Computed example of a mutant assay.
Amino acid sequence: MAQARVAAGVLFFDEAGRVLLVKPTYKAGWEIPGGYLHPGETPSECAAREVEEELAIKPAVGPLLVADWAPNPGEGDKLLFVFDGGQLSRADKEAVTPDGIEISTWAYHDRSQLESLLIPRLARRVLAALDHRGHGGAQYLEHGTAWNGGAPATEITTPQS
């Protein structure tokens, strides 16, 4: 039986529709706020906890946008959830404080910048979530690609993909 690692993240937006990304201290590149679930924790609880830990804010975690089955040869089976956090309130934006341990800074970025800022597998997942946003319900992905039955999505075998 599969024993997947499960993680959850949240997409937050500014008035212009740009996506909030965080800069981890422990690796190159940018990420979305989020992280791995603790035992007994639901994906939405994890997303809310991680946002509070990383950015010191407690905004509501909105609906699920995508669930992505994305095993990685170097890291094993993964199931990754991305929730819609909507637009942060003025108070939350003013209160954002990176923890300085895991996250050094944060910034909003245009959709056109995401592929150059995020690793490919995360970029595919975030872009799919953006495309699905506002359509209702959640979309199922495999390796960041929509799967609607039939043949499974192409397996990605490179560690950075």
Rank of each mutant, 00 (worst) to 15 (best):
W69V: 10
G35K: 05
F13H: 04
I156M: 13
Y140D: 14
Y140T: 15
A60H: 12
G9F: 12
A16E: 15
H132Q: 09
E53L: 15
D92Y: 08
E155S: 06
A60M: 11
Q160G: 09
A16G: 04
G136F: 01
G74T: 07
L37G: 01
L127M: 04
G29S: 06
A8K: 02
P98A: 12
L130I: 05
P39N: 05
C46S: 15
D92A: 15
M1H: 10
L88A: 10
P73D: 08
L114M: 05
S116W: 00
L21V: 15
G86Q: 04
Q160Y: 11
P33T: 04
L122E: 05
W30T: 01
K27L: 10
D84L: 13
A56D: 14
A56R: 15
K27I: 09
S161D: 14
E54M: 11
T158V: 12
E142N: 12
T145S: 08
V66L: 08
S112P: 00
L65I: 08
G40R: 06
G76K: 04
Q139V: 15
Q139D: 12
E52F: 15
L55F: 06
S112Q: 05
D84S: 11
W69D: 03
W106Q: 14
A48I: 03
S112V: 13
P39M: 00
E54G: 02
Q113V: 07
G134I: 13
G76L: 08
R49I: 10
L118T: 05
E41G: 06
H135V: 09
H109A: 15
L130W: 01
H132A: 12
L114F: 02
E75W: 14
L11C: 02
S44G: 05
K27Y: 06
A70V: 10
S112Y: 06
G34A: 12
Q113I: 03
R124P: 01
